[in-house]
């Protein structure tokens, strides 16, 4: 059930400390969403393009990262176009696209192990408050890892319902999907413990 997002490579982007990449992503996302200035936006996009060129990640993988969003973006674009006009609609597309690509670059050039280590250091700050940094770091990594899995299971369930002649309405599929997901993640939890996770 795992999804590997890391693409091996030796680029400068791969070698950057993961903490720095995550912080950079946060700053970049804020900058892109807050700017109204076309020149600033162009500069931000140029930075993104340069980062992509350095990373050596193929175009196909970037498009794959954008693919799950195609429909929702199309819907929002049409809505913005109708309500606010061309310019805001384009703005929305560029902003969302830039953040998605930036996030994809970070996850594609960062080993999960390194990401975990960075998160553990970050959560370590809260250790005096009784926060278990290791568990928090794993929770974050599992969340990122489980999103595509949940989406896949959901899509399969919808497709299965449609194959049996039910409508495309996904909501009746929610319960079997949740139960299947919980069963599989419970197995994963057992697997984690069997291999030494949580020293109890």
């Amino acid at each position: 059930m795992s999804i590997g997002v890391f693409v091996p490579g030796a680029s400068a982007l791969h070698r950057l400390p993961p903490g720095l990449k995550l912080a950079g992503l946060a700053v970049y996302a804020v900058a892109v969403s807050l700017t109204d200035n076309a020149y600033v936006m162009a500069a931000l996009l140029a930075v993104l393009g340069a980062a992509w060129a350095i990373s050596g990640i193929g175009m196909a993988r970037l498009l794959a990262a954008l693919k799950p969003l195609v429909w929702i973006l199309a819907a929002l674009f049409v809505f913005q176009l109708a309500v606010s006009g061309v310019r805001p609609a384009m703005d929305m597309l560029l902003t969302v696209g830039a953040v998605v690509v930036a996030a994809a670059l970070v996850s594609h050039t960062t080993r999960t192990d390194d990401m975990l280590a960075a998160l553990k250091t970050a959560f370590g700050v809260f250790a005096p408050l009784g926060v278990n940094a290791q568990s928090c770091a794993f929770a974050v990594v599992f969340t990122i890892r489980l999103v595509p899995f949940v989406a896949t299971v959901g899509r399969e369930a919808i497709a299965a319902r449609m194959a049996r002649g039910a409508s495309g309405n996904p909501l009746p599929a929610v319960v079997p999907v949740i139960i299947r997901l919980m069963r599989e993640t419970d197995q994963l939890a057992e697997g984690l413990v069997a291999r030494g996770f949580g020293r109890a």
């Binding site: 059930m1 795992s2 999804i3 590997g4 997002v5 890391f6 080993r111 999960t112 192990d113 890892r145 599989e184 197995q187 994963l188 057992e190 697997g191 984690l192 069997a194 291999r195 996770f197």
Partner: peptide, 16 residues
Amino acid sequence: FQNADAQIVMPTVAED
């Protein structure tokens, strides 16, 4: 485990 997927916890082979 019976289901190999259930105990593969990390995204890449060496990390796992």
